[in-house]
Every structure is written in structure tokens, then in C-alpha cells.
Simulated assay, not measured.
Amino acid sequence: MGLTAQSVSRFFSFRKKKQKDWAFPEELCRRFTLAEISAATQCFDQTLCIGKSAFGTVYKGRIKVDGDEDRKDVAIQRISGGSERRMREFRAEVQLLCQLRHPNLISLIGFCQENGERITVYDYMPNGVKHAVIHRDVKCFNVLLDQNLVPKLSSFGLSKMGPPALSNALIKMNSNLTGTFGYVDPEYLDSGNVTEKSDVYSFGVVLLEVLCAKSILILSNERPGSGAIFPDLIDPFLKGKVAPDCLKKFMNITVRCLRRTGAERPTMGEVQVELECALELQESADAVKQLKELGTSASTSLAPPLPAYDMEDYTYENISFSEINETFCILVRFI
């Protein structure tokens, strides 16, 4: 009996220790010590704080990576709260990002779990994408810009990983409702099933915010009933500078992303292609306008192009804004 009790005690002691330490393969992700993190952030000096959110505080730090003698700039997130839910989100983000490399995903280079601290260390290391990922919290706040203004999607604590390879099959999984108010897919709210199309909806909200240069919560207070409708809602900095064909294409993508059901929405691959098409339409229209305003032809012009702000504004008399206004009305009704 004594031996049995001792064996059981050892088993649970070993199991508890293993869960606490959370052994993680070093080849997948660098595990930093708390001493290294503390040195990199000068003991979490507030002057190095570069951002705060509900998940924690982000510091700019300098740390040695992969045995390099020189220290490099990194973003270090110190996750707040000690709940079991935060622990799950922390581990989910580490396990997910250590397997992903993509030019538009913020790249994880390491983490620290020591003395009750949960810390993630990020860098920008583009490569390829191995898994389909459902982010579940796409919003402007989580899209960061590097020194070259290249966008990086961050905050993967709520993310779900799909199968190892993308396929035509729609990933669908039951999930506890989570996300940010105003960005959450209404179909997800109704069914509890999160899909790749849930992120498409959230990205549609981001596109709307980009067009208007206002958050969705501010836009929800500028309802059509108060006189605020498109084209008046377009960012004044963009209004007149976006070519009509480009604007129509951009609005069409936005409206399609914000359809009420996932089946009606495009895939993110389709959204990318459509956005690239919108950019081509803008560049083509600008080139034609520049040639006209310089009074030359495409075959003989050697003059430098005019800056966009020196060109005459585009007009939108022949554009119908009814569809995006209708979509906007439906969207803000649920906020």
C-alpha cells in the first residue's frame, strides 16, 4: 500500500512539474530566460513601452538572437493577467506562430515563461505559410506597420490553426465566442462556428475603416439618418484622389466581405487579387491623368510624373453609392 501511494505521488508530482514547465522543442522556437528579457527591456522600463492592450504591454528591446554577438531590436510583449484562459491564449500564440513565416504576419522569434511571467518576443522574418489560420481578431489595432510601412498582422492569442495545407474545403470549427465588438462575424455570433470567412468579414470592417479613416465605433454613431452617408464618409485626404474605377472596385470588395453569410463572401485569396486590381486601376488612371495634364502623349513624354496632390481631383458623379450605404446601414445596426 505504501509503495502504491508513493508511486501515485511520484506520478502526479512529475505530471504537475511537466505541466508547469511546459517543455517546448527548442528547434521550433527560442526560449529566453527572464534575465535575458529583463536586460533587453532594462527591467521593463516604461520609457521603452511602445504599446498597451487588454493582453499586455509591449516594449522595444535589444536582445541577442541565435547566438549573434550583436543585439537586435525586437518587440517584447509582457502578457498581463494570470488566468487559465490567458495561459491558453499565450500557449496557442506561441505554438501557432513558431510554425508560421509570412511577409504579412508578425513573426515570433522566442518566448519566456518563468516566475509567473508570460512573454513573447517578435521580429519580422518573411518566409512561407504552412497552415491555414483563422485569426478571430482581425482589426486595425492588430495590423502593425514596420519601418517600410509593410503591414504585419499581430495578436494570435485567439487564433485557430486549420489543416496543414490549404484546400477548397471551408474550415469550420465550433468555438467559444470571442473577438472584438464591431468586427465579429454575425454568422459566428449566431452559430458559434468560426470559419475562414469569419476573418474575411472582419477584414471587410478594416477596409471600411481605411476608406473612412475612422473606427467602426465612431462610424456607427454617424448613421445615415443623421446625414452621414457615402461619399461624405470617405476620408477627406482620399476623396478626389482615388480614381473612380479604383473606388468602385474597392467598395465592391468591401461590400462583398461584409455579406451576412460566409458563403456569400469571397476568400482572402480573392480579396487579395481584387485589391491588386484596384491598385492597378488607380495607377493606370493616374498615368492617364498625368499625361493629359502635362499635355503630352504616352509615346513622347519624358517629363517626370506629377505628384498626386498636384493633379486635379477626380469626380464621382457617375458612381452609385447605394450598395455600400445599404451595407453600412446594416453593419451599424448591429453595433
Rank of each mutant, 00 (worst) to 15 (best):
T267I: 02
E114H: 11
L189W: 07
T296P: 06
P186E: 03
A23E: 14
A132W: 06
A308Q: 14
Y188W: 04
M87F: 09
I218P: 08
K172H: 09
Y59F: 07
F11K: 15
D45E: 03
N176F: 11
L331G: 00
M311D: 05
P231H: 02
I218Y: 10
N115P: 07
C43M: 14
P304E: 10
K241G: 03
L238A: 01
E222C: 14
N318S: 14
R101H: 14
M1C: 13
G162H: 01
I76P: 00
L28D: 12
L166M: 15
A39P: 01
L279K: 13
R265W: 03
T41N: 07
I229H: 08
D21Y: 13
N193H: 09
K60E: 10
M1A: 07
I216D: 01
C212W: 04
G110E: 00
E317H: 15
V129E: 12
A263M: 10
L219F: 02
A228R: 08
G192P: 06
K248I: 04
G179N: 05
V74N: 00
F141C: 11
E209M: 05
L279R: 11
K152Y: 03
Q46W: 09
Q99P: 05
Y183Q: 02
G204K: 02
T195G: 05
R101F: 14
L331Y: 04
R88I: 11
K292M: 13
E293V: 04
T180K: 07
C246A: 02
